[in-house]
């Protein structure tokens, strides 16, 4: 049984110009302990689909699916309360903007401990010890000092590490990382990615990695989903995808990798039909 199973997910927004489908007929399944990459250009509905899984979409969004199950339990049929019991404990998410993801009014320590307080029965001192342990695990130097730091006192990379510590606090079974490195310096990007993969290997959790970067996909993912305009274009093992991309859109994406640059220029991925029926 898959850890996360989504069939025929659609998410639409009510806009002034009418109903807009950000995700349409999407099937996703994530197995325990695997790394699934979701790629696709900006606006293809990668974030929206995963926010739907986390139940974080605004009220303006309409979510429908034939099935949306986590460990066999129907997410859509749950009460908000049951859903909150899962969030932060069994599934967690980190976002693209690390500094903006942390609440500027609370210390990093407070924000980690808060999750522990919500989902565990640890005592106050045990929570603090666990938070320090997490800070160390995500590679933040001087965890004692950083525990009492506010987000604005830390760099973007450190903030993302702190976010990862928050997400990992209750050892979730599923971590969704929505372009976790896009906003960071190139040198830091690799470190954060390595950290995520190390944590994934150690803990055996499943990792959904949303990214623009085909290079990252090649290095990290077991499986890849290619999305375009809210639909799934292709799904394959990472190896298969790179060796023999079936879909023309995927081929176009791959040809836009830096190593395929011709004379310092990349071929463009044209906005096109790519077999999307609308």
């Amino acid at each position: 049984m898959a850890l996360l199973e989504i069939r025929n997910l659609s998410v639409s927004f009510e806009t002034t110009a009418g109903r807009f489908f950000a995700v349409q007929g999407l099937d996703v399944s994530v197995d325990e302990g695997e790394v699934l990459a979701v790629v696709g250009e900006s606006g293809s509905g990668k974030s929206v689909a995963m926010l739907a899984v986390m139940g974080l979409l605004p009220d303006t969004a309409t979510v429908s699916a034939d099935a949306m199950r986590f460990e066999g339990r129907d997410l859509l049929g749950m009460t908000p309360r049951q859903r909150r019991a899962l969030s932060g404990r069994d599934m967690a998410m980190i976002f693209q903007e690390p500094v903006a993801s942390l609440n500027p009014c609370f210390t990093v320590g407070f924000q980690i401990v808060e999750t522990l307080k919500r989902h565990t029965k640890l005592s106050g001192s045990a929570r603090r010890a666990r938070a320090l342990e997490l800070l160390t695990a995500v590679g933040i130097p001087e965890p004692e000092r950083r525990y009492a730091s506010y987000p604005h006192q830390m760099s973007g990379g450190q903030c993302q590490r702190a976010m990862i510590a928050i997400a990992m606090a209750c050892s979730p079974k599923l971590l969704i990382a929505d372009e976790p490195t896009t906003a960071l310096d190139v040198t830091i990007q690799k470190q954060i990615l390595d950290l995520l993969l190390n944590l994934q290997t150690e803990s055996g959790m499943a990792l959904v990695l949303i990214t623009h970067d085909m290079g990252v996909v090649a290095e990290t993912a077991d499986r890849v989903i290619v999305q375009y305009q809210g639909r799934k274009m292709e799904e394959a093992d990472a190896l298969t995808l790179f060796e023999a991309p079936r879909h023309p859109y995927t081929r176009a994406l791959l040809s836009a990798l830096p190593e395929n640059a011709v004379g310092g220029r990349l071929p463009t991925v044209a906005v096109g039909d790519w077999g999307v029926r609308t």
Binding site: L56, R83, F95, S101, E114, I166
Partner: peptide
């Protein structure tokens, strides 16, 4: 960060 707060359950 409001999404973060909600994602904590």
């Amino acid at each position: 960060y409001m999404m973060t707060a909600r994602s904590k359950g």
